[in-house]
Design a protein around this nucleic acid. Structure first.
Lengths: 143, 143
DNA sequence: TAAGATTGAAAACTCAATCTTT
DNA sequence: AAAGATTGAGTTTTCAATCTTA
């Protein structure tokens, strides 16, 4: 990569990033219309689901989901209020908490995925050919 | 496109979308560190710059930037406070306003682009080969 | 009645300060 | 002093209601 990308190329990337911001908004709107929480909650629940039956420290959730730690306490408060996860004291480090997904949390995750996936499919499929998608997947794997 | 994409493919798209959300956060952080406003302001200024010397109705800015109209009034208030744009009454429709970018606004836009572009370059270049980028550009053009 | 724009109140987010434990 | 987590205060965003004109 010695050659610098052109301004046009960079603008195309900017456009991609902008378009996907819109996509996220659309997904959140659909989820909300279906009485479901937004993608921030999904991200947290997904990470907790992945490490089952173990849990995650709160700071680990922050690292994995890329949500800021300031907001995380209150976000997890709300998820706990809805009983989608459970906070337990940490044995190894009594400063911390360990968070576990509940059965209810897993259920909510399952309800959200079809809506999430539907939007992604529509977005990418409507505009790309199968060959494009295959190619794109290869490239995305590197990002 | 008769074939349905696999769950793995959709997950890869989800990951791409998530990664770019992070990228936007990083860009906003850099802009803020440089004493510059965030990407929402950039979007507004860019659209105004594009239509020069004409202006845009506020609802048109909302359509083009995909920012919600509720927030738009107050966002534009702030941009006007900093004299980056100018609001004038609309001759054809006295309900509305027409918004024009100022010289100061153009200056701010120019200051922001290098930081914006630098992040995009770093993000894409660091992980992709030149061939990937060329290919990606072709695909992105369709989105 | 509807569209463009604004505003008030509530929710969410961000930053810094704080508390507890290491 | 530093790390994990929480909290308070200020800002921003969102939702609904409002105002003016078409």
């Amino acid at each position: 990569m010695s050659k610098k990308p052109s301004a046009t190329t960079i603008s195309a990337w900017a456009k991609l990033v902008r378009t996907q911001t819109l996509l996220v908004d659309q997904i959140n709107t659909s989820l909300s219309a279906a009485g479901l929480p937004g993608l921030a909650w999904y991200d947290v629940l997904l990470e907790l689901h992945r490490v089952q039956p173990k849990g995650l420290r709160q700071y680990e959730i922050g690292e994995k989901t890329l949500l800021t730690k300031h907001n995380l306490s209150r976000l997890i408060d709300k998820l706990e209020d809805e009983q989608l996860l459970e906070r337990r004291n940490c044995d190894e480090d009594s400063r911390g908490k360990v968070v576990f997904i509940t059965a209810e949390g897993k259920k909510r995750l399952k309800q959200m995925w079809p809506i999430y996936a539907e939007h992604l499919s529509t977005f990418f499929e409507s505009k790309l050919t199968l060959a494009d998608i295959t190619q794109l997947e290869k490239i995305l794997a590197k990002l």
